[in-house]
Design a protein around this nucleic acid. Sequence first.
DNA 1: TTGAAAGCGATACCAA
DNA 2: TTGGTATCGCTTTCAA
Lengths: 336, 336
Amino acid sequence: MVTLKDVAKKANVSPSTVSRVMSNSKDISENTRKKVTKIMDELGYVPNITARKLVTNQSNTIGLVLKTISIEMRQNPFFTEVLTSISSVCEEKRFSTIMTTSYTSEDLLNEVKALVLSKAVDGFILLYSMENDPIYKYLVDNEVPFVVIGKKINNDPNVMFVDNDNIEASYNLTKYMSGLGHRSLLFLSENNTYEVNKDRLTGFLKVCKEDNIQHKYVNEVVSRDEITNLLINEDIRKNYTGIVTTDSMLNLNLLSALYKLNVNIPDDIQTCTFTDSYLSESACPPQTVVNIYPENLGKIAAKSLLEILQKEDAVMHSSIIPTSIIERDSTKQLKS
Amino acid sequence: MVTLKDVAKKANVSPSTVSRVMSNSKDISENTRKKVTKIMDELGYVPNITARKLVTNQSNTIGLVLKTISIEMRQNPFFTEVLTSISSVCEEKRFSTIMTTSYTSEDLLNEVKALVLSKAVDGFILLYSMENDPIYKYLVDNEVPFVVIGKKINNDPNVMFVDNDNIEASYNLTKYMSGLGHRSLLFLSENNTYEVNKDRLTGFLKVCKEDNIQHKYVNEVVSRDEITNLLINEDIRKNYTGIVTTDSMLNLNLLSALYKLNVNIPDDIQTCTFTDSYLSESACPPQTVVNIYPENLGKIAAKSLLEILQKEDAVMHSSIIPTSIIERDSTKQLKS
DNA sequence: TTGAAAGCGATACCAA
DNA sequence: TTGGTATCGCTTTCAA
């Protein structure tokens, strides 16, 4: 194995010089730089990252903290898109990523602590936002740099948030439905623990009030069977003209339930949801959605964190990613 | 920050002793073990993994090599399930994982080389199998331990493969369709570059021949629109009673196309596919599938690799994961 | 069963 | 602009 010392010896310089060449230090002559670079190539030298980490005390990796939820959550296209964009930003800056794997909140906290204490990561990106989150608190208390993808909480000036304006997004989507002529809407949400769902409900209710739309919102009805029962109980075809879901996987289950009940979209009822992905694009039928641009959420989050980590003069700032509505076959103008 | 030396000093022992306690060395007295453990707890000592890596020259992380394909590939539930199960096995054994991020085969090879040369990983899991793969060759040539999830190639005794018997799986699925009374089937496949798709076609054709089933197989027709055109051209309702797809995302597009054409499943036509996941379970309607148990593929692959890495006496072996058919609403007995 | 000390391969400080 | 060298935190001989 070729080490820095080998290079130094062969090039007739000191280890420090070689190190400087690698870090692109500017106080080094063009001559020695060339010489050293050449030798490095000849020898096929590859720096040992571990050794570097030990002395710099920097891991050059960031931790990705996922929600403590079922495996299905991790298959949610929203996450894979965010994750992919984070990875590619990191890749560019020669950072690695490491993802949490815990399913209970207790395990998760411990996992994060272990990552911090063992110096395995330089910072975190939290892929959720939740009030009274012990992990949030731990990171703040221990001054570990991190950014949150999700809603701002506590108004802590030392924490960066990257989010959409979900109230607005939901307001726009509902307003769009209202514009199509809907006067009775059903709103389905997985739960109301996370901030994002609260906001989407808020936006929905605002339009309902403004435009005098009959409505009902239901939480925690998630599986295909549960939804089927709900649709039957609500006599869906008769009492509603549209259904809004907060999530693309929930929407998937809804469509499956409607298919089972032989309710046609958009003729018998119309549907729309949040978070665009192949799931919505290739649904039965393709769904009108709010695109929240997960790839931008991830990109900005990663860039912001890396900036904090690498630049002295980086300035804390939160970001709001704009959203847009994509119209597809699941909605259309209602005949009056 | 608490280091091993701090613990040693406080416990009045040497660093070596503390190190031995951590590694569960057996030549250490019960007394000192207890004493040291207690101090470690008191001080909240967490070993610095980086330092350990440097001296042991082991990274305790394994590299996951993904196909060089579009982002959609990474959203395929098959991958997320395999990945999740690999991660959880690694987590248990205190290994980390690192995933490749390259999209071109050239970049991918370089990424793998860099991982090897910088000692960033101890071994790899390849999440695909392909003939004449330069990465495969590189790993073999450089004696890097790895296991392949996918079909055995080259019959190399020094490489471990974990796979399903896809010929058999496809045979069984097609036989099942035949048993329902189907006598004309359409077979859709994304491509025939990877071994897995070749095998699935082979199994399909075998049954068609045995049971005298009219059939047609089509590659590279993937998007919703392409499929829609195909279905129209083939006059699908009239000429076929069933459609087999090789992949759950392809199946998703098929269902969307059928929905658009107002073709009902299973009344107008029946469908089935490979790889179970929420996509198939919550489809319109839920799909009959071959479960290839991605979680077991990942689990066995990870366990096999870790065994090689950790145990002296580990013995090379390839594994075949059994498959099974899950019957759902998309198929039923055909009335004759 | 324990301790002393020599590294592992980089970086970074202090001198020159 | 360069070199010498202590150092990061741990493991691992070798000796006691």
